[in-house]
């Protein structure tokens, strides 16, 4: 069993898990590359072509809406509990408002307010049996990313951005099956953040890095539409530090979203 909690993916009890780990690492490098390259490119472009800071078509402010689908990776080390699998995909949605300020054509400061689901699915095949206990957790967060965005192009533009976000865990709901006193029993439970256990255990603050990139086009002079891929990398354990020998859990969320902005 390979196990490297530093790099985040839980336990690799099988080949697919290991490849998942590698894929994450490669994705990390790819997105970092996507992030860094346009920065260098944009700086070079400005220097070499001497693009004026604000042309007559350049809008200083923009406001917009975004919507998209996300895939969350719940990162937890399950050690010897190798029959707990967090590899299944539990789709989540993302809806947001965005406000942009562009002092330079190639540079935008963007603040988003995003309602984001960081869902995950787990399966537990009970050892020595074929009984599988599915469990889906749907978490709703509000995230407020502050982004520094680098742009290339005029009508069709490439973007790369990075920044940080602050967030709050708003709700959590678990559905699935467990082995109760009556045998296999389904459940559907909304987490009560006011319960004493939740107050002791659950860290509702969410802080992390976010970066991504995309492409957009300006239509009808004042309207800009685009698509982008975004990566939220949570830095806060979703559990509080309530016990020794901790086993932190993190969320890493990819979002593919489309947006429309009005250029003021």
């Amino acid at each position: 069993m390979l196990n490297n909690p530093i790099h985040g993916v839980q336990c690799f009890s099988s080949a697919p898990h290991f490849f998942l780990f590698l894929m994450n690492k490669q994705t990390l490098l790819l997105l970092t590359l996507l992030f860094v390259a346009p920065i260098l490119c944009a700086q070079q472009t400005d220097t070499l072509i001497s693009l004026p800071p604000a042309s007559s078509h350049h809008s200083l402010w923009s406001v917009g809406l975004t919507a998209g689908l996300g895939r969350n990776y719940h990162v937890v080390d399950m050690s010897y509990m190798t029959d707990y699998r967090y590899s299944k995909y539990a789709p989540g949605s993302s809806f947001g408002l965005q406000l942009g300020f562009s002092p330079l054509r190639w540079l935008t400061l963007r603040v988003d307010g995003v309602m984001l689901q960081k869902n995950y699915q787990r399966s537990h095949v009970i050892g020595g049996t074929t009984i599988s206990l599915p469990d889906t957790t749907r978490n709703t967060y509000i995230n407020l990313p502050v982004l520094l965005m680098f742009n290339v192009g005029k009508v069709v533009r490439l973007h790369a951005y990075g920044g940080g976000y602050w967030g709050r865990w708003l709700a959590s709901r678990r559905t699935g099956t467990t082995y109760g006193m009556n045998g296999l029993v389904s459940y559907d439970e909304q987490l009560d953040f006011d319960s004493p256990e939740s107050q002791l255990r659950d860290n509702r603050s969410d802080v992390g890095f976010v970066w991504g990139g995309g492409i957009s086009g300006i239509i009808k002079q004042k309207i800009e539409v685009g698509v982008e891929a975004r990566w939220y990398y949570g830095l806060y354990d979703i559990q509080k530090d309530y016990m020794s020998h901790p086993n932190p859990r993190y969320n890493t969320t990819f979002v593919l979203q489309g947006g429309i902005s009005y250029l003021l």
Binding site: P5, T32, L235, H245
Partner: peptide, 25 residues
């Protein structure tokens, strides 16, 4: 660029706490 990417990756990964249950039998 490669150095920047590598440094950024390692920095990000190191920001998360390590699990202390990995070695439990």
């Amino acid at each position: 660029s490669a150095v920047i990417i590598l440094a950024l990756t390692i920095t990000l990964a190191a920001c998360r706490k390590e699990s202390e249950v990995s070695d439990i039998i």
